[in-house]
Simulated scan of single mutants.
Amino acid sequence: MSSFTKLSALAACGTLLLAGATVLPAYAEAAPVTLNLRYAGVESQVQVSGVDTVAGAIAQLNLAVDADDRVTPGLDAALTDRMALVVDVVSTKTTTKKVTLKYTTVKTPSKKLYKGDSKVVTKGRNGKATRTYLTTTVNGVSSTEVVKEKVTKKVINKKVLVGSNDKRKLNLARLAKWNKIAKCESGGRWHINTGNGYYGGLQFNLATWRSVKGQHFAKYPHKASKAEQITVANRLYAKRGFKPWSCRRVL
């Protein structure tokens, strides 16, 4: 057999002979590749052979992977031994729901009002909306976010003026008459509290004291000064005169 014939025969058998070299079969399989796999959050070590891309490894391992799932590295990435292959299993769900949009209260300081007082200038009104939610589940853990909102009834926030004026003006009009009434009502003792539900020189009860903002000066009438009690009495006088006091007879 000629040299040419021998070479042809060797080639036909898939064998290549080199001087001083080992004879290797051309069809010998590549060594298996070990992968550090994390699929759906579960870690394991696997082997594949005869494939050279991530896509091929996934197919050989019969891993369920769809378009929503996240594969790292990408499907076209070349395999290397001991590489990390991560497949996060992802699913999404869209839902629509009608919701109430609650109004907020916006407070604005006002020097026109005393501290402790407030005034509503705009009443609050809740609104309504239709929201679309997207729920994304990654390896069994879900999170939800609003992806669309259509307001069907506009929210109107409540607007309130809050008093910031701490300079309270005193009104000592009718001083002599208030002194006479106080002498009759309490013996002229402006800080008296006998426990009968009436307080101070002019014997206010709490409901009446509060009805004319006596709390501007003190929580209880007998805790306010004489001038402050008279100021509050003049506020009540502007509404009802001396009628609330039985001791008006001494005037």
Rank of each mutant, 00 (worst) to 15 (best):
L61Y: 04
K123D: 13
K112Q: 08
V151D: 04
W209K: 01
E149I: 02
W245C: 05
K159H: 12
N62W: 03
R174C: 01
D166H: 13
L134Y: 03
H216A: 09
T105V: 14
A84E: 15
V106D: 14
A233T: 09
V87M: 01
T53L: 06
G140Y: 06
R174D: 09
M83T: 05
N165G: 03
A182D: 01
K107V: 09
A21Q: 13
A11P: 15
K98A: 15
T34A: 11
K107R: 15
E185L: 04
G74I: 04
G14W: 06
T231E: 11
R249S: 15
T80Y: 11
G41H: 00
V48C: 00
M83D: 12
A78T: 13
T15H: 13
K177Y: 12
D68F: 13
K123A: 12
T100D: 13
L251A: 05
I181F: 10
L24M: 12
S118A: 05
K223Y: 08
K153S: 09
L79S: 04
V120P: 15
G56S: 06
T94W: 09
A31N: 09
D81V: 04
M1G: 15
N62R: 09
T144V: 06
L79R: 00
E185G: 01
L251S: 07
K213S: 13
G163K: 00
L172V: 07
V151S: 02
I230H: 03
K180E: 10
V160K: 08
Y198A: 04
V146D: 05
V33E: 07
Y220M: 14
S91Y: 11
S49D: 14
Y220H: 11
V23H: 08
P244E: 00
L101A: 06
Y114S: 04
S110H: 02
L61D: 01
R82V: 06
A224I: 02
G163E: 01
P32W: 02
F204C: 04
L170T: 06
H191T: 15
A233Y: 14
R240K: 14
A57M: 09
Y114L: 06
A233P: 15
G200T: 02
C247G: 04
F242C: 05
D69N: 06
G20F: 09
A176D: 14
G74Y: 08
V160E: 10
W178E: 01
L61N: 01
K169Q: 11
A19Y: 13
E149Y: 07
K93W: 05
A64Y: 10
L113Y: 10
A21I: 01
Y103L: 08
P221G: 02
K148F: 14
L236E: 04
L134S: 02
S143R: 12
G50A: 03
V120N: 07
R131L: 12
V155M: 00
D68M: 14
A182Y: 01
V48A: 00
K180S: 11
A26I: 09
V138Q: 10
